[in-house]
Design a protein around this nucleic acid. Structure first.
Length: 458
RNA sequence: GCCGGGGUCGCCUAGCCUGGUAGGGCGCCGGCCUGCUAAGCCGGUGGGGGUGUCCCCGCGCGGGUUCAAAUCCCGCCCCCGGCGCCA
């Protein structure tokens, strides 16, 4: 059973150093890891050897009948224990250090990932839809399209759309972040009436589409243990994103990805059961500790929201195809909603530690003149499954390896609502409801069907 | 929260009282045999190190006793059942 990172560490450490450099991390960690691993292996041999000698003596005691002989053997065993304990203490130290270091290593950057320290190095791979562009943003629009060699058809509009935050609080008056701040703090929100229906309709839409593709619908635990959490994220993410339950070994999930990855932790999965495709629906809780003052207004970046999440357990040889499938699924959802987007191949420096490669789907925001992230799709290869000990059993020869895991947003409710508020906005402030959502609103008498209307000005 | 039962190599299970290399069944893998299939027979079946034939570790987790712990002792976690509480 081999973990890709450990294999590379022993067989081709330079490749691992290169991967670290691409992420903008110190490659000397790799050298330290090689050192520790070598030391560990040497020490392990010595310990095993002494353990063996002790075992031989110990076993011979039960067979020894002569009391004098027994006394002599027990004396010998005691001597070996002292020798063993000294070596074992050393081994334990090295082993612990090695374990920590190995778990701190990020996934290996895939060869197709653009190299660069920031999102400016993200490479758009395709565009869809016809964005509405105000003349003020025309130059910015070109910078985000033509600069990369894409010719994107757009609609020039002569009125300036109101930003999603003001739409929410002032034009529609269906959201209240000020009172939410009073009650819970900043980055919380109250949604009312039509926007609540819209939130739920978005979730139903994504659940409906993805289950029709054969994804199994899951409502997971919203709190999970520390052990599971550290199997799916790195320490940085943990510090920035995770809420802890006081006095218990429980943490609020930041996404359904976490409990879905934990679902088969510690288990063996027969290869003919793969791929296992899941669609989770859950609230998500995020501290946004590192976000600073970014997106402080509105509901673009908040401490809690609802999300429909795609998650797949896959065989290693199929995971790269499945990553494409996941981003295509998300694209279908956004095409259905009629929101113009681009897909970017995320630069090496912006990948989270778990991901080997990541696509973001970014929707054009007419009031901001920017494409903004709505969806993230990652192949985490065996990074999570190694930590969670999820093995793949091959029929042929009963070989054991680690499965690959992948995750991707389907729809994140609040963020998608911001995109709708800007893209479906009419000059008078009316927000037209995307047609695909209407069937999920039809059954409810009080739900909006065609559009959401601004409050009348007195 | 209380009481009781339990956690053994993928699954099921024996061993625990009485300490001395963890056994069986199912499943799976490889082979033999056989018109085919089934059955039958033989071997294998967790992690690690080393490598022609080897060794170490592994019985929920962590300690302790012992030359030696699945087995005895202490603490903890989890699961099941009953009681209590309860949306």
């Amino acid at each position: 059973m081999t973990w890709s990172i450990l294999r590379l560490l022993r067989e081709n450490p330079e490749a691992l150093r290169e991967s670290m450099r691409k992420r903008g991390l110190d490659p000397s960690i790799v050298d330290r890891a090689v050192e520790l691993d070598t030391a560990w292996r040497q020490l392990k041999r010595r310990v095993d050897e002494v353990r063996h000698r002790h075992n031989v003596v110990t076993r011979s005691i039960s067979r020894a009948r002569d009391p004098e002989e027994r006394r002599r053997l027990i004396e010998e065993a005691r001597r070996l224990i002292r020798e063993r304990e000294e070596l074992e203490a050393q081994l334990k130290r090295v082993e612990e250090e090695r374990r920590k270091l190995l778990l701190s290593l990020p996934n290996i950057v895939h060869e197709s990932v653009p190299v660069g320290p920031s999102d400016e190095y993200n490479v758009p791979v395709r565009f869809w839809g016809k964005p509405r562009v105000h003349p003020d943003f025309l130059e910015a629009f070109r910078q985000q399209t033509e600069k990369y060699g894409f010719k994107v058809d757009y609609e020039l509009i002569d009125w300036k759309p109101v930003g999603h935050a003001d739409m929410l609080e002032k034009v529609l008056r269906l959201g209240d972040t000020l009172r939410a701040a009073k009650v819970a703090g900043s980055r919380f929100y109250y949604l009312f009436d039509d926007l609540v229906w819209l939130d739920l309709a978005l979730l139903l839409y994504a659940m409906d589409k993805l289950t029709s593709k054969g994804y199994r619908l899951v409502e997971p635990p919203y709190m999970i243990r520390h052990k599971i959490l550290m199997g799916v994220i790195d320490v940085e993410t943990f510090k920035e994103a995770i809420y802890k339950i006081e006095g218990e070994d429980l943490y609020l999930i930041a996404t359904a990805e976490h409990p879905l990855a934990g679902l088969y932790s510690g288990e063996e999965i027969m290869e003919d059961r793969l791929p296992i495709k899941l669609v989770g629906v859950s609230p998500c809780f995020r501290r946004e500790a590192g976000a600073g003052n970014r997106d402080l207004k509105g509901i673009f970046r908040v401490h809690q929201f609802h999300k429909v999440e795609q998650f797949v357990y896959a065989k290693p040889e199929e995971s790269w195809d499945i990553l494409e499938e996941l981003i295509r699924n998300a694209e279908e959802l956004f095409q259905g909603l009629g929101l113009p987007y681009r897909v970017v191949n995320v630069a090496s420096g912006e990948l989270g530690a778990p991901a080997a490669k990541k696509y973001d789907l970014e929707v054009w925001m007419p009031a901001q003149g920017r494409y903004r992230e709505m969806v993230s799709a990652s192949n985490t290869t065996d990074w999570q499954s190694y930590r969670l000990n999820i093995r793949l059993v091959r029929r042929k020869g009963m070989v054991r390896e680690y499965v690959h895991t992948l995750n991707a947003t389907g729809i994140a409710s609040t963020r998608t609502i911001t995109a709708i508020l800007e893209n479906y906005q009419e000059p008078d402030g009316t927000v037209v409801i995307p047609k695909v959502l209407r069937r999920y609103l039809e059954p409810f008498e009080r739900a909006p069907k065609e559009a959401i209307y601004p409050v009348k000005k007195e």
